[in-house]
């Protein structure tokens, strides 16, 4: 990292219509926000210099996120509240920025550090109740492992490892709202909609995942989960 660079971490939402964006589109939109905000961003070296910025783990098209993060490196330390305000007025409301703070310049990247994600999953459909979903989850978790086919490849998840916390019912609905916490990273990231869809196939009902929102991305340190900001 070059001398005199300041790593500003920004928390933003991917909400409303912006949930239909791909990760690449979110990245490009927020980089444009940073340029509109005229932040003194650092630029990478080489023949194709670009804004020095790094984003947290990707969200799929269609999934909203309440607290997503990116880091942008600045050449001058603009006070964080001022940077946040400038970014805020240069960002579309559906990608609103909520928080900004400087973080340790040499710390690990967001994708390396944040290994746990918390989701809010809405399940709807004929005959779906909170009890039924709980039963379905107990059944699938009891199987210990889950095979998921993705783009022609089979991925196997060890559910004890992939689910650091038990899923909780937040609202009995309809639709039933659950809080699901899963691990993500190099060994695979278990998508909560995949887990729920599998679980629902183990019980007699016409339930389906209606919507998924990632509510938090968390860093695990010595068994304790904390937010990146």
């Amino acid at each position: 990292m070059a001398a005199g660079e300041f790593r500003l971490r920004v928390c933003y939402a991917k909400a409303g219509r912006a949930r239909f964006l791909s990760h690449l589109e979110v990245m490009r939109a927020l980089e444009r926000s940073a340029r509109r905000a005229a932040l003194p961003y650092a630029v990478t070296k080489g023949f194709s210099p670009r804004m020095k910025a790094a984003f947290g783990p990707a969200l799929p098209v269609g999934t909203a996120g309440e607290r997503e993060y990116f880091d942008v490196w600045l050449t001058q330390p603009v006070p964080a509240p001022e940077a946040l305000e400038r970014l805020g007025s240069a960002t579309p409301p559906d990608l609103r920025v909520a928080e900004a703070r400087y973080v340790h310049e040499k710390g690990p990247s967001l994708t390396a550090a944040a290994t746990v994600a918390r989701y809010e999953v809405a399940v709807g459909g004929e005959g779906v109740t909170a009890e039924l979903i709980e039963k379905a989850l107990v059944t699938v978790v009891g199987e210990g492992r889950l095979e998921v086919e993705h783009k022609g490849k089979i991925k196997v998840f060890d559910l004890a490892r992939s689910l650091p916390e038990e899923a909780r019912v937040r609202s009995c609905g309809p639709p039933v709202i659950l809080e699901v916490t899963t691990r993500m990273g190099q060994e695979g990231s278990l998508r909560p909609d995949v887990l729920l869809t599998e679980a629902l196939s183990r019980v007699p009902c016409d339930g389906a995942v209606v919507s998924v929102t990632r509510t938090d991305i968390l860093i695990e340190e010595e068994g304790v989960l904390r937010r990146p900001l």
Binding site: G16, R17, A18, F20, L21, S22, E25, A29, R32, S33, R36, V61, G62, P92, P93, D94
Partner: peptide, 15 residues
């Protein structure tokens, strides 16, 4: 929009 290619084509709300 849930089941079409590139729903971003239809969402408006750009800067």
């Amino acid at each position: 929009l849930a089941c079409v290619e590139r729903p971003v084509r239809y969402i408006d709300s750009e800067w």
